[in-house]
Design a protein around this nucleic acid. Structure first.
Lengths: 356, 356
DNA sequence: CTGAAAGCGCTTACAG
DNA sequence: CTGAAAGCGCTTACAG
């Protein structure tokens, strides 16, 4: 405690310590600690009477152990850090994070963890920096990492360190514990479905990012197509979605596709609107499939046929995995710390039989 | 550090400490601390050469001070607790909390605070309990309290304690530091506006809750009406909004109102739909005004004439106030810790001149 | 059954 | 200029 402390905090006396509780209950500080932690074990046995007395004082004063001190003394704090590479709450990123955080929050409630949001991390080029000189990861027992893209350098550093963490979403980096969505199999199924409906002219428009979740969807698309017919796959355009409505529409038209796989629902939405403008009937003349749930911002959209990643469950399971790691360390088998959850396939109304 | 530590963590040696850095740089641990904290002041003056050497080792090893230890040694935690009476992220409460939390988060980033969400608090009757036996408020330097309704017992206990906190939203309880929205003046303005447009038959339908935010809107309505004409106020129905669309519509019809003040946008929305069903033209035959922003769940609604509480700003300013309190204690003047932010009046399209 | 003591990693007067 | 030392609040062997 620095010297100036008292002068600054004269008004509010220092927080309640075990020592003070001990005085009040007429026991030693160690006894208080024993009671607080409900230790009955090996060497300590506190008579019920004493325990009651201490407990009473404890409750009367609403004592809570200083988590910093506890942590320093080597106990887990039941505190889980949540690091998001972008601000978690704003509308722009709300769709992405909200569902995940809903799951995390619900599970935290169940498992009795509090959540520490690392909002103080300095923002660099619009993204928060994980390892900055004053990073406070250690405040939490372990941490959840959220973000469409996560720096592989960060992941490597975490993997080689001893700090428990779990990434939400599959990651390429070796030995990273994660819980992700199984986009590959999901997209394969969607491709099969379209194929069986007679579609042969496909188009995949994906987002312009290196994120694993996007790569997986592309991979699923390629695998699905090649399982159906490798020669058709070779003629199937797989492109980054254009940025404007018009350019998107050009991509669709010039591809001659009967079904568009628009990874991003926002793109599906724009294409749908352009289709209306150009008097193209969706889905009778053009089927549209999207590979994630549409945001509430595009509520007027049709009920897109789509892949629905189980975002709430992803959040919940990530926390569950982290809790396991905290308790018993990283599992031996990769399969036990790299989990892929199946995506739901929503039938929707925008994928119908191809016209002959 | 408990005894079993090594057996559990054999693989990963203990985290890097200043002591180890000191050995590597051939200085004392105190010197490392001095360098880490960039202290130049009073008693310590480290020659640039030594400093460089230490800095180099520090960087090479990516050293970060253990925040728990720092905190224990008396440095502020820069940790703000966030207590929500309901789960913060789920869709049902998303509209209410998201905007607030967006503001809080943005401000936390600016002020360098991390956010601790008290998700471990046990839920009783659908609401989290603030003061439960294992409450961990003390984990944070202070805390923000969010909720439509906040138990006054909780508030009283907080006020009489020494734990710094700020409520988001105005509260009746004495001496509670808060940042709220000025609903009273906002509603007064809306009443005036409708009055000037020739409306004389008003109806106020409010939510069935004791929350201060609702009471304030009712108060504003009453004040506005009585400023216009007390005798008309006496004939103006002020009721709890019915639960079903049909009953709501009955309330509207039987009141004979030319303008409905529906506090809750969800109610405004239902009334609007009933109006369409019953071939009543909104706004030409019936004006509707709502006293909060509609949720994105009702996106198909018309652009309601409404009061828009500055939710993001509420969040941000609450954190700012709490930060002030943390630094210099509760201000002397009530006016300095009980803040009311003006609501924006959105013209919208559902309030027009009354038919003569 | 309970207390005195060591130690967690750090900050900061205080001696040299 | 730099190191030895006290102390933050806690947990847990270890003595009594």
């Amino acid at each position: 405690m620095p010297d100036w402390w008292w002068s600054v905090n004269m008004s509010t006396p220092r927080r309640l310590t075990q020592r003070k509780i001990a005085e009040l209950a007429n026991v030693s500080q160690s006894t208080v600690s024993l009671v607080v932690n409900n230790k009955e074990g090996s060497s300590a046995r506190i008579p019920p009477e004493t325990r009651e007395r201490v407990l009473k004082v404890l409750q009367e004063h609403g004592y809570v152990a200083d988590p910093a001190a506890r942590s320093l003394a080597g106990v887990a704090n039941k505190l889980i850090g949540v690091f998001t590479y972008e601000a978690a709450f704003p509308a722009e990123t709300r769709d992405f994070y909200s569902e995940l955080l809903t799951g995390v929050e619900a599970q935290a409630e169940i498992l009795g963890y509090d959540l520490l949001m690392f909002t103080s991390a300095p923002v660099q080029d619009g993204r928060r920096e994980l390892f900055h000189p004053t990073n406070r990861l250690r405040l939490a027992d372990g941490c959840l990492l959220l973000g469409l893209e996560i720096e592989s350098a960060d992941l490597e550093r975490l993997v080689s360190g001893d700090y428990p963490f779990v990434a939400v979403g599959r990651r390429d980096t070796q030995n990273v514990p994660y819980v992700g969505a199984n986009y590959v199999d999901g997209v394969v199924q969607l491709v099969e479905k379209a194929w069986k409906l007679g579609h042969r002219k496909f188009l995949l428009l994906h987002r312009d990012t290196e994120a694993e979740s996007v790569a997986d969807r592309i991979r699923g698309f390629v695998r699905g197509m090649s399982e159906m017919d490798p020669s058709i796959l070779r003629q199937t355009p797989i492109s980054v979605a254009a940025r404007t409505s018009q350019d998107l529409w050009s991509q669709v038209v010039s591809s001659g596709a009967s079904v568009v796989f628009a990874e991003d629902p926002a793109h599906a939405s724009l294409i749908y609107r352009e289709a209306i403008k150009n008097s193209v009937d969706v889905p009778r003349e053009l089927s549209i499939v999207t590979l994630a749930d549409p945001s509430t911002l595009f509520e007027n959209d049709p009920d897109f046929t789509r892949l629905s990643p189980p975002r709430q469950k992803l959040g919940a399971e990530s926390l569950t995995l982290l809790a396991k790691i905290l308790i018993s360390g990283i599992p031996k088998n990769t399969a036990d710390y790299q989990l892929l959850l199946p995506c739901e396939l929503v039938s929707g109304k925008t994928l119908v039989a191809a016209r002959v």
